[in-house]
Write a protein that binds this DNA or RNA. Structure first.
Lengths: 326, 326
DNA sequence: TTGAAAGCGTTACCAA
DNA sequence: TTGGTAACGCTTTCAA
């Protein structure tokens, strides 16, 4: 089913069919009738490949995740898809998974879209270099040359959180889920926390930023008698794992041990004690990324770097303030 | 940058360049050298549009969600992307969101892929009809004519759950988050529960299958003195909402009120009391869907309908069995 | 107001 | 072993 068959049936040229369907150029009312009738009868839909080839654009854009695991990325995708969809662009996704063939996969993806949103540090630098020229937005990533970036605020909110915890009177802290790669979100969180707490806090790495990772690291930490009074976790999932470990050791949270998270994923609200955490506007991050990318595609402009505000959400896992007691 | 420029630079024809790059047909070692050198120097990548047009396939497939909200769909997507990626297919996603333009969006998507996975009842019947001929897999959806289907088992596990609860000695039940649309997962769950509990259980609808929806419905229900002894919720999020309502009314779970969920999302494990629920192999559902779709695309065959097994996960929200007491 | 034809970038068949 | 060329399905310019 091609435009030729429609044209033949309607007794016009393919050019006229195209004009009729796209509303570009003039078409006599009578001719339009005939064409639409033929389109209807043949149930014709223009080939996307043909359209893209002729238009010189895909009307689609992609997004590259480090992984699709965990609630964090799902929220970002939700915001992204919604806006991209509104803007009339299809959405292609790719999960890097630390897989070996990321290079190929990213290049393949790039060939199918007009622009790409990439989570910070998921794609090797040289691959990024090959993508130069294509509209690119890095998210969850600090300002860098050569592309727009978009992230959630980390340092300042980390300071607020640390200050809040010190207000509870705690003196010894651990930062659970310490940074592996410099420059990412986690690093900034650590930076902010340390700037307030100084020597009172020490970084404790986890194998992964997951419940399992948090659990294992917390077990080791809580076993010792010289355990910290408060666990500042670099992510909610890590904090959830820490909660599990505390429970196992019979430590009451927050009475014996304070625990805080980051991101405000769904489970943070439903855990008991409910997690004090920093809410990131994840959906908004995705939505903004889609908008910025669309701008970039529509008309190139100098790069811009934006930071979205975050918010401390105080629940019960961090401690009870005197004025909160009845 | 097209294949013509490469050919010119290498001093060969475009046919030879194509053969060299795809490894189809014979190419003299020396010629191959020249071509690869030119490709390297020009940093040539074949246009995906051109390839697809000539090959007559997209090497991509799509998946249509009712919504991207909630942890359930994220898991399915994870499994789907992983397998599709392995099979060398790009992934396009679409969230129907109950939006008005689903029709257009689905048809647009269909034009970009070789096959589609669709969550049951997200796409209007007549749109599905227009898709006939395209490989299609419906998931989370019972057997139907005209396409493969894939779902998680519901009825039998519902019976197991209901039996378990009756074993706790409860007599009055409510099924929270009762079905709105016949034939979907929720309906099957209700069917199974009712087949065991009969008149002892009554269906209570929620505005949505969300925490909020569960919370609101549970509040109304628990306000009355003739409240049920156990709440069988049709989804974990609804159950989480019910837990919130119970807490608000000072009802201890499971001592005063038993609550169960469905799906085993992450928050189910971390809620306190931890949710008794039915685990669905969501990731596996997505992965299988990708595989089935690939089969269908590769070589058409008679439709097939499969059901994945589920599993009752007993945690603490459903009640304490005597033998579990120390 | 309409149509002819030139792209757009490949693949693959058929000759040479 | 290589090259010429039709085919894939559309958009758009230019003439008529």
């Amino acid at each position: 089913m091609t435009i030729y068959e429609v044209a033949k049936r309607a007794g016009v040229s393919i050019a006229t069919v195209s004009r009729t369907l796209r509303g570009t150029g003039p078409v006599a009312a009578k001719t339009r009738e005939k064409v639409l009738k033929a389109v209807e009868e043949l149930n014709f839909t223009p080939s996307r490949l043909g359209v893209s080839l002729a238009e010189g654009r895909h009307a689609a854009n992609g997004i590259v995740f480090p992984t699709l695991g965990g609630p964090y990325y799902a929220e970002v995708l939700l915001g992204y898809e919604e806006v991209a969809s509104e803007l009339g662009r299809s959405v292609l996704i790719l999960s890097a998974k630390g897989g070996s063939n990321v290079r190929e996969a990213v290049k393949e993806l790039a060939g199918r879209v007009d622009g790409l949103v990439v989570f910070g540090r998921t794609v090797p630098g040289d691959v990024v270099a090959e993508l130069a020229g294509m509209p690119l937005v890095f998210i969850s990533c600090g300002p860098m040359a050569g592309a727009d970036t978009l992230r959630c605020e980390n340092v300042e909110s980390a300071r607020v959180l640390a200050g809040h915890l010190r207000g509870h009177g705690y003196r010894r802290f651990a930062f659970l889920g310490a940074p592996h790669t410099p420059g990412d979100d986690i690093s900034e969180r650590w930076e902010g926390v340390e700037s307030v707490l100084g020597g009172a806090v020490r970084p404790v790495p986890t194998a992964e930023y997951t419940v399992e990772g948090g659990y294992e690291a917390a077990r080791k930490l809580l076993r010792k008698k010289s355990r910290p009074r408060a666990l500042i976790c670099s992510g909610d999932e890590v904090a959830l794992g820490a909660l599990l470990a505390a429970e196992e050791y019979g430590l009451a949270v927050p009475e014996d041990l304070a625990v805080t998270g980051w991101d405000d994923i769904m489970a943070a609200r439903h855990a008991r004690p409910a997690l004090t955490t920093i809410r990131q506007p994840m959906r908004e991050l995705g939505a903004q990324a889609a908008r910025v990318l669309d701008e970039l595609i529509t008309r190139p402009r100098p790069e811009r770097h934006r930071t979205l505000p975050t918010q401390l959400v105080v629940r019960s896992s961090c401690g009870i303030h005197p004025q909160e007691d009845p």
